[in-house]
Design a protein around this nucleic acid. Structure first.
Length: 162
DNA sequence: GCCAACGTTGGC
DNA sequence: GCCAACGTTGGC
């Protein structure tokens, strides 16, 4: 028996949810930018999603966290993945990592393009009231990951409600 | 502003 | 390798 388990490489469900505090990057800013690099992620699990699980063309729900109300507010689509995060190499960035270099970027991000701002944002409170969304990882206790997988059936339910 | 939950760091 | 201390996330 090998003493080490291989690192699990999760299969993409094809759908994602990314969190952003509207005060740092809002859906309105995303709509203006048309596309953005999802930089500044400094968590290995979230990074690995953007390095090896996410695929171009997959849909991304945009969630406002720490907001009033916190809610799913829009939709984007993955354009590129596994892009070295430029903020890690920028000494003036809040996200600068002195251990990162051009040959060893450490941190990677995805590029996401704007598709839609929802007419009816789906608040966290509303999400909790939908039985078929009860298993969303967004609702899991202690869940702090800024990038989460979404199941196809959950995505369909959400798109019916926004 | 509070604080539970979790990830990371570093001393040993 | 253990684990206490610390920092961050994000709901409330």
């Amino acid at each position: 028996m090998p003493s080490k388990k291989p690192l699990p490489k999760p299969v993409s469900t094809g759908f994602w949810l990314v969190k952003s505090e509207p005060e740092s990057y809002s859906i309105d800013q995303f709509a203006k930018d048309k596309k953005t690099l999802w930089t500044g992620v400094r968590n290995y699990q979230a990074r690995n999603f953007m390095m090896e699980t996410m695929k171009p063309g997959e849909k991304v729900l945009f969630y406002h966290s720490n907001a009033e109300p916190s809610a799913i507010v829009g939709l984007g689509e993955v354009v590129r993945t596994n892009v070295p995060d430029p903020t890690a190499l920028d000494a003036r960035s809040d996200y600068h990592d002195p251990k990162a270099s051009k040959d060893h970027p450490i941190w990677f991000c995805a590029e996401i393009k704007f598709l839609e701002k929802f007419d009816l944002p789906l608040s966290l409170e509303e999400i909790r009231r939908v039985d078929s969304l009860a298993d969303m990882s967004l609702l899991a206790k202690g869940q702090r990951l800024s990038i989460l997988q979404v199941q196809p059936d959950e995505f369909d339910v959400i798109m019916e409600l926004v």
